[in-house]
């Protein structure tokens, strides 16, 4: 690790971070960023391929992740997951609720089954993880909870009623929980991502006109570009920051 003073500003050495997943392509990048900043990373998801990819990403940074296959919409499984983490690490400093979903359909065609599945995988899982791990953070009088959301936290979208409603829930949860635990040493913030792709090769290969048409920076973001903001919000130096949504989108939301 670099000895430059910036490393002390953003250092996460000795911190324990749980990264939840719901099949998001961002999970490996999020896990790797926290590991590279020095944190011990737990990857919690019910999707084996996601766990594997994130494990490899953490290992590439020199870290050894703890991978837990868990149904995050099941309260007893979430409790068991927390017990496993506590038995090995004794604490949880950082929770990244990375439980977004892309579900787009005309509103009249959405079935109740689909709605329930989406709610279970996102809203219910975020609620259970925040409550269960938050209780542990309250005991510690320290914690950082970071929700990974999208621009739909602030904007509507045709055929995106279900998805944007859930992001609206996450947004308000960020604000209210941030306030509720403001004096308890716990900080709750969210990162609202825009259009991002895994790496520079895929960005170069992209043949859509999305960047030129919609993104002020005229390019997609790379997944790894979430690292800086994520690590800042996870660090001790973000103690005066809570209840906020931070857009990471190349200027998308700033535009009319």
């Amino acid at each position: 690790m670099s000895q430059n003073p910036v490393s002390t500003m953003f250092d996460l050495t000795g911190k324990l971070a749980i990264v939840t997943g719901n099949g998001s392509e961002l999970t490996p990048s999020i896990s790797a960023a926290l590991s590279e900043a020095g944190a011990m990373v737990v990857i919690a998801s019910h999707i084996e391929t996601e766990i594997k990819k994130a494990t490899v990403a953490v290992e590439e940074t020199g870290g050894t992740p703890l991978a837990i296959n868990v149904d995050l919409s099941n309260s007893s499984e979430v409790e068991d997951m927390l017990c496993t983490v506590l038995s090995q690490a004794g604490k949880v400093d950082i929770l990244v609720n990375n439980l977004g979903i892309d579900f787009y359909k005309p509103f009249v065609d959405v079935t109740l089954n689909e709605l329930n599945t989406v709610i279970d995988r996102t809203l219910r899982s975020t609620f259970l993880c925040s409550q269960s791990i938050g209780t542990q953070m309250l005991e510690q009088n320290f914690g950082r909870i970071i929700h990974i959301g999208s621009g739909l936290m602030d904007r509507g979208l045709p055929n995106g009623v279900v998805t944007s409603s859930i992001y609206g829930y996450i947004r308000q949860m960020t604000a209210s929980l941030g306030l509720e635990w403001a004096t308890k040493g716990i900080r709750v913030n969210a990162i609202a991502t825009g259009w991002m792709l895994p790496n520079s090769e895929e960005i170069q290969d992209d043949r859509t006109n999305i960047p030129s048409k919609y993104i002020p920076l005229k390019r997609y973001g790379e997944f790894s570009e979430i690292a800086g903001l994520l690590v800042y919000l996870s660090s001790d130096n973000s103690d005066f920051v809570t209840g906020q949504v931070f857009h990471l989108d190349g200027g998308l939301i700033a535009h009319a």
């Binding site: 800086g228 809570t242 535009h255």
Partner: peptide, 28 residues
Amino acid sequence: PIVVFLASQASNYMNGSLFSVDGGALAG
């Protein structure tokens, strides 16, 4: 730290964003 982050290459995809550092004031 937040100014260093915004001045650095680590924030290259952030553009037009607001960064509240306010102890939660704007959340409520």
